[in-house]
Computed example of a mutant assay.
Amino acid sequence: MDKSLDEIVAAKRTTRRGKPRGVRRGGARQQILGNTPKSADPAQRTRRAAPAAAPAVATTPFSEKIIVSNLPADVNEAQVRELFKTTVGPLKDVTMHYDAHGASKGIATVVFHKKGDGAQAYNQYNNRLIDGS
Rank of each mutant, 00 (worst) to 15 (best):
K114I: 03
A119P: 12
I67A: 01
A58G: 02
R21L: 03
D2A: 07
T14N: 08
P20Y: 15
D41V: 06
A119Q: 15
T59F: 03
R128P: 07
N127D: 05
N127Q: 08
I66M: 02
M1C: 14
I66D: 04
A53W: 07
Y125A: 02
A56M: 05
S69N: 11
G27D: 12
V80S: 07
P55Y: 00
A73N: 03
S104R: 01
A100T: 11
S133Q: 09
S39C: 15
F84L: 00
N70L: 07
T86P: 12
K12I: 11
Q44G: 14
E82L: 12
N76Q: 04
A121T: 04
G116P: 00
V80K: 01
P51M: 09
R128Y: 05
V80G: 08
I32W: 09
D93V: 03
Q124P: 01
T36P: 10
V88F: 00
R25H: 11
T46N: 13
G116F: 06
T46A: 10
K115S: 15
K115G: 09
M1R: 10
Y98M: 11
S39A: 15
I8Y: 04
D93P: 02
G26C: 03
G26I: 01
A121F: 00
D74C: 05
K3M: 15
Q79Y: 08
M1P: 07
P51H: 06
D2F: 05
G22D: 07
V110P: 03
I130Y: 09
A49Q: 08
Q124M: 15
L91N: 01
K85L: 06
A50T: 13
A10W: 04
P61F: 14
S133F: 07
T46Q: 14
D117F: 01
R24C: 05
R25D: 12
T36V: 05
R47H: 10
G27S: 12
T59D: 02
G132Y: 04
L91K: 00
K105R: 06
E82R: 09
L129G: 05
A54E: 07
M1H: 04
P37L: 11
D6L: 09
N76F: 07
M1V: 08
A40V: 07
